[in-house]
Simulated scan of single mutants.
Amino acid sequence: MLLDGEAWQAKFRDFQTEAWRLETLPEYKVPQEEHEIRSFLAGERIDPHTHSNEYTEDLKRVSSQGKSKGRARIVTRPLSTYLRYEFMYYRPHVWAGEDIRIMDVTNRENSLAGVQDFWMFDKKEVVLMHYEADGTQIGREVYEGDVTPFIEYQRIALAESVPFEEYVKGLDV
């Protein structure tokens, strides 16, 4: 089943305990981010101490309800411009309650190579994220099979990653 609109938003509103994402691509082409990326390239930065938007407010709501939202981001160094831009927003997201972890596969085997991006909700439902090679999203699809492999992918990602704040210590991001 292809997922969009209200049905997609309901996944984030209705999960009971955990919404978790695996991000595998070096870059995502998101039309809403184009202006922000141009500003980032021009030297503009957000203040992570004061930055608030709909996403950070939702993270606070989720945390206050005893739920968790998290992700593991696979990266290689040197960090691309896109990753440095994305990391700028990760700090306020972490402070708002998101468990963001970084799995750096520079100079080592990527044990999740070939696994596509996905969201997993309550370890019961998986939504596969479909992208073009350049990172343009072309669809979302509710996975109809056994979610056990995705639970294992999450376990591997968590075991082989570090918390975002630990990863960026000493980095200029």
Rank of each mutant, 00 (worst) to 15 (best):
S63C: 03
L83I: 01
S161Q: 07
K123P: 04
P149L: 13
Y153R: 01
H130P: 00
K69M: 13
H51A: 12
Y28F: 12
Y89K: 14
H130C: 10
L83K: 07
S111F: 10
T76D: 03
F40G: 08
G97P: 04
I46E: 09
E33G: 02
E23V: 09
Y28Q: 12
Q65W: 07
P149K: 15
W8A: 09
E125A: 06
S111G: 03
I138Q: 01
L112K: 05
T56A: 09
E132P: 01
S111E: 13
R73M: 03
K123M: 11
G70A: 01
Y131W: 04
V173L: 07
E18A: 01
W20T: 00
W20V: 05
K11I: 02
S161M: 04
E57Y: 03
F164C: 08
G170T: 07
G97W: 03
Q137V: 06
T56D: 13
I151A: 14
T106E: 10
R155F: 04
Q154M: 10
I156V: 15
P31S: 09
E27K: 05
H35Q: 09
V94P: 07
F15T: 13
L158V: 02
V30E: 14
F121A: 06
Y89V: 02
P26R: 00
R77D: 13
D58A: 05
N107D: 14
H130D: 06
R13W: 07
Y55Q: 06
G66K: 05
V173S: 10
T76A: 11
K11V: 02
V162W: 08
F118W: 14
R84N: 09
S80N: 15
G97D: 15
K29F: 13
N107Y: 08
A157T: 10
Y153L: 00
I102H: 02
T50L: 13
V30I: 12
D122C: 07
M103A: 14
E6Q: 04
V115Y: 15
T148I: 03
E36H: 15
L171G: 09
T24F: 02
L2S: 03
D172L: 05
F87C: 12
H49Q: 03
S80F: 15
I102W: 00
K124P: 10
E18I: 08
A133R: 14
I138G: 05
V62W: 12
V62P: 00
G170F: 15
K123L: 10
M129E: 06
